[in-house]
Design a binder for these strands. Structure first.
Lengths: 338, 338
DNA sequence: TTGAAAGCGGTACCAC
DNA sequence: GTGGTACCGCTTTCAA
């Protein structure tokens, strides 16, 4: 029952032109700069356009103008709500100027990320947005030479390829360490992903440094794999209690894990924070609603997307960019779990 | 400090050709059908390609071949985890054959969806994936004439434009009504979004019909607006208890709302399911972890994406499609909340 | 096995 | 205001 797809030969600029008795040039003007066309002509052409249901071929237009009005974005995972928020904000901001998003999902794999960047570059996007900083020398060189704005997001770098919008994961980890110390916890753990997640790694590094500053040298680390789901967080709690039954506080690399860990504690009757304090990262939408509610770090997911979009638009419009590195900060949110 | 972007004049096929002492055609062949080129020539050309860091311009290639290897997808919201899962599966499936995803976010607005479809069509995608069924006559006609595969997902229709992959929201609502009736609940409510969310509407319609079949004619309906967050679900519970204090069971249009409602009950000391039973929709990842855990409907989010991807690939490869409508069904998951 | 020429469907530039 | 013409960078067709 599959229908035969003989090309329905869509109409072109020239078809419209012929039927309207004008040149292709004029039709093009009607579409792009109607002001330059006599009103009578304009109407005649427009009516043919409507009748034929003519849709300009942007591929051809892109080739001629060497601008695609597409922005390529590469993210570790589409199915992660935090990045999805950023992408939605980015998409909304870009849409106000007719730019569209080409999204590539690297699935947290660096090699795949490299391939993706190449594939994307071939499509000649007007700008490129990366999540995190690309670590491959080759790709960085490629991007630098691409001649389009490049925004690295989510993680601040001292040496961005071009632009950078985000916050310091390291500083956030550091702050959490200080908070945990002040609250009197001394046998501290970290549960989170490390391999292939540089942002999470940075948090742990900052956390470690913060603790060391208070004379606490050891962190009980439990590394979890993909995906960082609540189930995995719950399993992390079990492993923690088995391997380090003395732990009195745990910092989860993300709220997604932390919520799972928190709910596991509730189920198992482990008092939070009395027996075990929990701190998350990311302030997910249910983190304020659980009982106990989750102490965590709120991250400007939406703003990263919208500011990135604005920077891209500014660049593309030839406007001056005051700061190449935009630190949006984060907020520590003290709730009940720690 | 904005750097000057004088076009770094990327190298073209012809540049490579000249430097390798061959014609542009030969370079093109090296890239696309290396088998047709003498090995010595191939190596010489390849080394020039590497040295120049030549990347083929896909825009030009697309124009020449009239195929973009892009699939356009239009979804109500990027920031919704369910659609994000579907998109990730779709993206992964398409990526195996070098297709890329152009994602547009309609923000749950039908008018915006229409515009998006038009904008997308101009980019000449090789296929189009819609979430839900487009209701605008004009757009349906446009899509039907576009000459590319169109897959409507998430909601089954009797009359798809082309292909359709999903499940019946109506049937799911119907089943939930029966379950609720059998468990002995008689003063039933619905909390969810309706305007601009045809899928949720369908669930309520099925729910209503199911109840009517058991002689229960009235449903206490509380409509919520954007976004359907857990906070909104919690507020919904408060409104429900105020307006319909007699309600003994509530069906939430989505787990995102239901989780919020459930946690609100826990906080307020309302016994679930004894005082108020709760049924959700969508089986989110934490729905099995709350206490009580959430009774809900599991929806094949991932499969919708992967099957859609396979159908698209089949169509584009000219393979026969056995069924134009693919019903992936859903699973009722009984847990503790109802 | 390789190359020359004619598109693909628009837009830029320059006359009229 | 409007039209002619030369591209944009690649692929396809056909000859050599």
């Amino acid at each position: 029952m599959s229908k035969t797809l003989l090309p329905p030969k869509r109409s072109r600029l020239e078809d419209v032109a012929r039927q309207a008795g004008v040149s292709a040039q004029t039709v093009s003007r009607v579409l792009r700069k109607p002001g330059l066309v006599a009103e009578a002509t304009r109407q005649r052409v427009q009516s043919v356009i409507d009748r034929l249901g003519y849709l300009p071929d942007l591929v051809a237009s892109n080739l001629a103008t060497s601008s695609t009005r597409m922005v390529a974005a590469i993210i570790p995972s589409l199915a992660s709500s935090v990045f999805a928020d950023t992408m939605q904000a980015l998409s909304a901001t870009l849409a106000t100027n007719g730019y569209q998003l080409l999204i590539g999902d690297s699935n947290y794999s660096p090699e795949h990320e490299d391939e993706l960047v190449q594939a994307m570059l071939g499509r000649r996007p007007d700008a490129i947005v990366l999540t995190g900083t690309s670590r491959s020398k080759k790709v960085r060189a490629l991007l630098a030479r691409a001649g389009v704005p490049v925004v690295e997001t989510w993680n601040l770098t001292a040496n961005p390829i071009d632009l950078c919008v985000g916050f310091s994961n390291h500083a956030a980890g550091f702050d959490i360490a200080r908070y945990i110390f002040r609250r009197g916890y001394r046998r501290v753990a970290f549960i989170g992903r490390l391999r292939n997640d540089p942002r999470s790694e940075d948090r742990l590094r900052g956390f470690r440094e913060g603790l060391r500053g208070h004379g606490m040298s050891s962190v009980r680390v439990i590394e979890v794999g993909d995906p960082a789901s609540p189930e995995v967080g719950a399993a992390g709690i079990d492993e923690l209690l088995r391997r380090y039954p003395d732990a009195d506080a745990v910092f989860f690399g993300s709220d997604r894990l932390a919520i799972g860990g928190l709910l596991a504690c509730v189920r198992r009757g482990i008092a939070v924070p009395e027996r075990l304090a929990i701190v998350g990262f990311g302030d997910f939408e249910i983190s304020s609603l659980t009982m106990p509610s989750l102490t965590t770090i709120a991250v400007p997911t939406w703003e990263i997307g919208s500011i990135t979009g604005e920077l891209v638009l500014a660049r593309l419009a030839g406007r001056e960019i005051p700061e190449r590195i935009v630190d949006l900060g984060y907020r520590f949110i003290q709730r009940e779990s720690a």
